[in-house]
Design a binder for these strands. Sequence first.
DNA 1: CAACCAAAAAATGTTGACATTTTTGGTCTT
DNA 2: AAGACCAAAAATGTCAACATTTTTTGGTTG
Lengths: 229, 229
Amino acid sequence: MNSNVETTSGLSGTISGEITETLRDAIITGEFPQGSKLSETKLAKDLDISRGPLREAIRKLEGMNLIQHIPQQGARVVTLSPKFVLEIYETREALETKAASLAALNMSSGEIDQLHRVIDAQSKFMHDNSNAHIPAESDYVFHEILIRGAKNNVIKNALLHRLYPLIKMFRYQNSKASNSTSNSLLEHRQIIYAIEQRDPELAAVTIKRHIVRARNRIERRFNENIDGD
Amino acid sequence: MNSNVETTSGLSGTISGEITETLRDAIITGEFPQGSKLSETKLAKDLDISRGPLREAIRKLEGMNLIQHIPQQGARVVTLSPKFVLEIYETREALETKAASLAALNMSSGEIDQLHRVIDAQSKFMHDNSNAHIPAESDYVFHEILIRGAKNNVIKNALLHRLYPLIKMFRYQNSKASNSTSNSLLEHRQIIYAIEQRDPELAAVTIKRHIVRARNRIERRFNENIDGD
DNA sequence: CAACCAAAAAATGTTGACATTTTTGGTCTT
DNA sequence: AAGACCAAAAATGTCAACATTTTTTGGTTG
């Protein structure tokens, strides 16, 4: 199974944890299609494990919002309907805006340096490739540093464990809907500026605009695919 | 086991679901103390079930943030440290502020009527009892209607499934730290007003102040218990 | 030919036993 | 007496079989 989406998670050590990561990546990449059923018997056979750990993995993935489980009926991969995706981005807007204002207050100078290193790399990449798109992975790294810098574990877990998997899934399976436009680098610079100024309000409005713009691009694309095409 | 905290959940039908609700209520009420270990063998014996469904229930409770599970070490009830509680309220502020502004846009008039009925009942209660405190249950109902009115399932699940259980747990075990002051009724009226005006910004600032005040009361209480006492 | 019912097949839910790891308790050494 | 070490006990992780529910299938009937 393809598993180069994200390997950084502390779920290993047990079969249940390993399987969780395997399935997570398979869902994010679309190897298991949206809405498809995850048959316990079949999966257990394919992965060569018993159903016990598999069921626990499914419960964990349910906690990540990647799977919907209905008693006596089984588990299905979530379906990223337009409505659902827009709801995800509204939630992200609420949480990450708060995270940014907290980051402006709580980030260490070391963490700010990390942010600089990331956008310097992004800048170099775009210059070298004269490419309008920042690599998705690099964009995640930027936002993850910012989220961790807020020093609020509840917000961090909500974003990194329950929302970003869905966002990664959407982006991976809709590569054209990439969040990384040519504006992203500039917007990232503005966010860093606000944090360096230790200005929580500025950080909030800046990142809010960043996320709302991404949401609006996605919404526009959805609408195009309805009337036009 | 005491279980009059909340009985409305669609988890029944399976042993795993029943046990989840039982344990959830036992954790919220403090029957299982914060930080205490939930021994699978002992619990399975006490509840007279096998460890399979119990383990699944523990996974679900982990998804509700009520339990922390460490591989090879077992599950423990979360500890509501002051830092953790304040983080919970910061997260609630972010999510419920967005929920309120969405509710101002999306709530049906029927739902607004429901809000009115709840605060009318609260008003009658306070008048009859000349009591400074709205019952916690009634306060939850108000906020739950508002959250559902936002018509955003991601925010709804984050708040009702992952954050409110923790808030209920904190309030139940710190009854003096009740959120319901004499101001709460007035603040609830202001929130309804903003929603009736279909004014998302006003709804946002109003509920934000409501939640930040609650947070500040809690923070003050924490500080009192450190220096003073 | 479609609708319906019943038996069979398959899937999910549950259980008890086994495997492996962690914790406990006591002994021995320094 | 304190600490290291080892064996026993207990706990968590895993498995395979059993129970119950749902889905499928195939045949009958209107």
